[in-house]
Amino acid sequence: MISKLKGVLCVLALIVFVAGHSQSVEIIPSYGYQFGTKLNYGPNYLKAKDSDQFGIYAGFGASDYMKIGVSYTRMSTELRIRDRIASPSESRLSDLAYDWFLIGATRYFKTDKVRPFAGGGLGIVVITPSDVDTSIATRGLDSATRFAFNFKAGVNIMFSDRVGLNLQGNLFFPVEWGGIYVGGGSGGVSGGVSAATTTILGGFSGGLVFLLGD
């Protein structure tokens, strides 16, 4: 919880700093749908279910066609497991939250009422299990912070010079997936947040666009 709070404060501080040195600011609060993902380990697997996501993006104008921005995105889902020793049939393992803090760039291809764009970012993701089923994970599950990056593409449809609608698709990549390192045995599942592979979390979102400044 403390690490997430520090991350949010860092994002807010960066927004305030850059806004003070920028003539154009783009604010986009958003809400969307996140597809689930699955991580296989041997004959077993972990599965994060589909979920919602919400976030906020602040872009600062380097030019009419380019924005440098910071974003925060929150995903909350349920983690399920099938393990031939600890859980032979698929069962709920824990709740799982992803908090993404990213810095990146957005390239607009038009600057009129309909503004298609593409972009990406780099940063960190904080992965936090909670309400763990200790009959399966007998020693609990730990949180972790991983480097991460994302890609996005979509369109802003402007109703006026200041307000519009944002529609976009999102791909999020933890450099190491925030799954669970699983060690099965007679004592159940144990582990922390670590994995040997990267997975993709894809989804889409919509929001409002607010343009401030010149």
Score class of each variant (00 low, 15 high):
Leu9Gly: 14
Ile85Gly: 00
Arg82Val: 08
Gly178Gln: 06
Gly185Ser: 12
Leu14Gly: 14
Asn44Asp: 15
Asp131Ile: 00
Leu201Lys: 12
Gly32Phe: 03
Gly55Leu: 08
Leu165Gln: 10
Asp142Phe: 00
Ile27Pro: 05
Gly123Tyr: 04
Gly42Trp: 07
Pro29Asp: 04
Gly140Met: 04
Gly178Val: 04
Val209Asp: 07
Leu5Trp: 06
Gly178Phe: 03
Pro43Trp: 00
Tyr31His: 05
Ser194Arg: 13
Ser194Glu: 13
Asp52Trp: 13
Leu212Glu: 03
Thr197Cys: 01
Val114Ile: 15
Ala13Val: 05
Leu167Tyr: 02
Ser130Asn: 12
Ile85Trp: 08
Leu212Ser: 09
Ser87Met: 06
Ile15Ala: 15
Ile103Gly: 15
Ser135Cys: 06
Lys6Cys: 08
Leu122Tyr: 07
Phe172Asp: 14
Tyr57Ala: 11
Lys4Phe: 10
Ala86Lys: 02
Phe210Pro: 01
Ala195Phe: 05
Pro116Asn: 05
Asp161Lys: 14
Leu46Ala: 09
Leu12Glu: 04
Ala48Glu: 14
Val8Pro: 00
Asp99Gln: 13
Phe109His: 02
Arg74Met: 13
Ile85Cys: 03
Leu171His: 06
Ile81His: 04
Gly36Pro: 10
Gly178Cys: 05
Val132Phe: 07
Lys113Thr: 12
Thr73Ile: 14
Gly191Val: 03
Ala19Pro: 01
Ser205Arg: 01
Ala97Glu: 15
Phe173Tyr: 06
Leu141Met: 14
Leu122Arg: 02
Asp64Trp: 02
Arg146Asp: 14
Phe117Asp: 03
Leu208Phe: 14
Ser135Phe: 06
Leu93Met: 10
Ala153Gly: 15
Arg107Phe: 07
Gly120Met: 05
Thr198Pro: 01
Gly140Thr: 07
Ala144Pro: 00
Glu176Phe: 09
Met1His: 10
Gly183Pro: 00
Gly42Ile: 02
Val125His: 06
Val209Asn: 08
Thr134Asp: 12
Met1Cys: 03
Pro88Glu: 05
His21Met: 12
Gly55Asp: 08
Pro29Cys: 04
Leu5Asn: 09
Ile56Gln: 07
Leu167Met: 12
Pro174Gln: 04
Gly121Pro: 03
Ala195Gln: 12
Asn40Met: 02
Thr111Asp: 15
Lys6Arg: 12
Val25Ser: 11
Asp99His: 15
Val163Arg: 01
Ala62Glu: 05
Gln53Trp: 00
Asn44Cys: 12
Thr106His: 13
Leu12Arg: 01
Phe149Ser: 02
Thr199Ala: 11
Ala62Ser: 09
Ile85Thr: 14
Ala153Phe: 08
Gly203Asp: 07
Gly55Ser: 09
Ala144Arg: 06
Gly69Pro: 02
Ala105Cys: 04
